[in-house]
Design a protein around this nucleic acid. Structure first.
Length: 480
RNA sequence: UCCCCUUUAGCUCAGUUGGUUAGAGCGGCUGACUGUUAAUCAGUAGGUCCUUGGUUCGAGCCCAAGAAGGGGAGCCA
């Protein structure tokens, strides 16, 4: 058909000149009045309006211009006579690249429920909401690498299949190529993993941290950004069985340096989104506000999405210790009036999400970083503090999301680490290499984990983690 | 895994105290109109009322079990 190369819609809208002839390809969002085709190619949330002359165009061709169809148009850029757009394309020729049977295509030019769209995850990216989320997701992936690169960190690919059963971050998915209908057994009657592909029991990783620490002991500042798997039977809007996690690990950082980096990192990412995803965020902001209007007054957000994003960038995160938090919670109204499901009575209790939400959403009304948690409720690798009761752990708590980052200063002292491993009954044989890091040239170091989809929840204002990853994996759900 | 809620047309939802032929908007189809903005107007088709069993003269509605979806909790990122 036309002589010109395809022009992306974002470039037509931002950089084309009136009078220019060009080719646009994309998917029909809606076809109005038998002459106005709204085309979207995903390069921007905005559509280009292509205007056909129905008097001179084949009627049978026009009938195939249906919502969802893929088309190619050649035409001239002209100033629009209508109000909704400044330029449009006056069509000279129109070609259907792919029909979409209007009787069967499930998407209509109207609002669909997120639940319905989850059932058609292969098509939902064709909606404004999901294409915006995909674009913001890309921007955040890029910003993560940009941030760490600018700070001199090195990206490390840690293994996805792990032979260590000691990561201690939850239930794991087994990896095997044994014949599950005929499992080899050893003398004790248990599965004989010597027969398995790796000659030992293996799982999908639940964290790249331990391996990242090895790189940290040579490259000083590293980070991982990879898929992570948890076989927990979690059915919440904040959990996935397969998600992406960012785990920086820094030599010579103490817990305070660690918190400084976490705060700087989050602010960098949100700033990047504000500066680079303005159109998509404006749409998502409006979407959230429309959704909020359906809710009763009490459940509505106090701030809009844009206000929340700016708020995080502009305000210092509140920092306090676990012990200080317990004092605040113990004397809080909901605790005194027994409104908490789990009342805070004494030091040592694990904080429930209702407590974290109280601190973040009611008491401080700001992101909060808690540190120095009781050692008994935290992982074996966290550095033991001088008081003998706490470890140098830190959690960054965000409004609406809860824990977005969890991290710690790592225990770098061989004897302390070894005794902690023994106390907690963790199989030491799997951790020999981890312990050797402390034997040979150990160094103080710290790190944290950021759940990428939790960040996405915050940046997009979406309420369910299944809507910020293209193909969510949750219990009973691995379609697509 | 636990608690609560929901399930009626392709989508979003009404459906009275158990009563005869189950409705609306959007979408689809047919036509009209032709500078529209989720176009508009007219007409029209479209139903396993989630499933199974029960109560009843009679069940979309009541009861029981199950399934699916959502919200909250736990676990965590």
């Amino acid at each position: 058909m036309g002589a010109t190369k395809r022009t992306k819609i974002i470039d037509v809208l931002n950089a084309s000149k009136v009078g220019e002839e060009l080719t646009v390809k994309g998917w029909v969002r809606t076809f109005r009045n038998n002459q106005f085709i709204a085309i979207n190619d995903g390069s921007t949330i905005n559509n280009i309006q292509a205007v056909v002359d129905f008097n001179t165009t084949d009627e049978n061709l026009l009938k195939r211009v249906t919502t969802g169809a893929c088309i190619s148009v050649v035409g001239e850029v002209v100033e629009s006579m209508g109000k909704g757009q400044s330029v449009e394309i006056k069509v000279k020729s129109l070609e259907i690249l792919g029909d979409a049977d209007a009787d069967k295509y499930p998407l209509q030019p109207k609002k669909h429920s997120l639940e319905f769209l989850r059932e058609i995850a292969h098509l939902r990216v064709r909606t404004s909401t999901f294409s915006a989320i995909y674009r913001v997701r890309h921007a955040m992936i890029f910003a993560v690498h940009k941030f760490f690169t600018e700070k001199g960190f090195f990206n490390v690919h840690t293994p996805i299949i792990t032979g260590s059963d000691a990561e201690g971050a939850g239930e794991m998915f087994a990896v095997t190529n044994l014949d599950l209908n005929n499992i080899p057994k050893n003398e004790e009657g248990k599965v004989d993993f010597k027969e398995d592909f790796f000659g030992k029991e293996t799982n999908l990783t639940v964290s790249g941290q331990l391996e990242a620490e090895t790189a940290c002991m040579a490259l000083s500042e590293v980070y991982t950004f990879g898929p992570t798997f948890r076989a927990e039977n979690s059915n919440t809007s904040r959990h996935l069985a397969e998600f992406w996690m960012i785990e920086p690990e820094m030599a010579f950082y103490d817990i305070i340096d660690n918190m400084d980096l976490a705060e700087e990192f989050l602010k960098y990412l949100v700033t990047y989104a504000l500066e680079n995803c303005a159109d998509d965020l404006a749409f998502l902001d409006k979407r959230s506000q429309d959704e909020d209007k359906q809710k009763p007054q009490q459940q509505r957000a106090e701030m809009s999405l844009m206000e929340r994003l700016k708020f995080v960038v502009e305000n210092e995160f509140v920092r306090l210790t676990y012990t200080e938090a317990i004092d605040i919670l113990r004397n809080s109204n909901p605790n005194k009036k027994k409104k908490f499901k789990y009342l805070i009575n004494e030091w040592g209790a694990d904080l429930q999400s209702e407590h974290e939400r109280y601190l973040v959403e009611k008491h401080f009304k700001k992101p909060v970083i808690l540190r120095d948690y009781p050692r008994d409720i935290k992982a074996f690798y966290m550095r033991q503090n001088e008081d003998g009761k706490t470890v140098a752990a830190m959690d960054v708590l965000f409004p609406g999301i809860g824990e977005i980052i969890g991290g710690s200063q790592r225990e770098e002292r061989y004897d302390n680490l070894k005794s902690r491993i023994e106390e907690m009954g963790i199989p030491e044989k799997d951790l020999w290499w981890y312990l050797e890091l402390r034997k040979f040239g150990t160094a103080p170091h710290s790190g944290f984990g950021l759940g990428f989809e939790r960040l996405m929840l915050f940046v997009t204002g979406m309420g369910n983690i299944r809507d910020v990853i293209p193909f969510p994996r949750t219990p009973e759900h691995a379609e697509f």
